[in-house]
Structures are given as structure tokens and as C-alpha cells.
């Protein structure tokens, strides 16, 4: 799926590690790591939670790029 994200950038800007981010979002560190690596697409609820933690919109963190034909 052509879904990219800038979660790592926003998390680093907040000065927190994956474990702390996971605690704030109510998920495990592994899940944050999977999202950052693009190996897992979060649910809408989790995407909204992450955006709220980073104080940005969901579209700021997650970018959907359709294939150019």
C-alpha cells in the first residue's frame, strides 16, 4: 500500500522514544516501530491518537500516494 509516514520525525521532535510514544497512544513499542517502518497501517482511531499526541493532523503524519499511471 502506498502509505508513507513521518511519525518518527514528529516523535523525535517531541523528544520521546518509541516506548513512551506507545504508552501515550496505548499500544506497544513494537506497534510504534512497525508503523514507523511502514510495516503496519494503523486503524483510524490509532492514527487520530498519534496525530493528537504529535499535535498535528493525521494527514501531516500519514501520506497516501497513489500510483501514477
Amino acid at each position: 500500500m502506498p502509505l508513507y509516514n513521518k511519525l518518527k520525525e514528529y516523535r523525535t521532535a517531541l523528544g520521546i522514544n518509541q516506548t513512551e510514544m506507545g504508552k501515550l497512544a496505548g499500544v506497544s513499542r513494537q506497534t510504534i516501530s512497525l508503523i514507523e517502518r511502514g510495516d503496519y497501517s494503523p486503524s483510524v482511531t490509532l492514527a487520530l491518537k498519534l496525530a493528537r499526541i504529535c499535535q498535528v493532523t493525521v494527514e501531516d503524519i500519514f501520506i497516501y500516494e497513489e500510483d501514477t499511471l
Binding site: 496505548g26 499500544v27 506497544s28 513494537q30 506497534t31 512497525l34 508503523i35 503496519y40 494503523p42 486503524s43
Partner: peptide, 13 residues
Amino acid sequence: EQWMKSCDEAEKE
């Protein structure tokens, strides 16, 4: 079942 309840969405998947 108890373990599953404690899993987050990525772990459940």
C-alpha cells in the same frame, strides 16, 4: 482469551 484482550491492534492482527 485473557492474553488476546491485552494485545493491541497490531499484535491482534
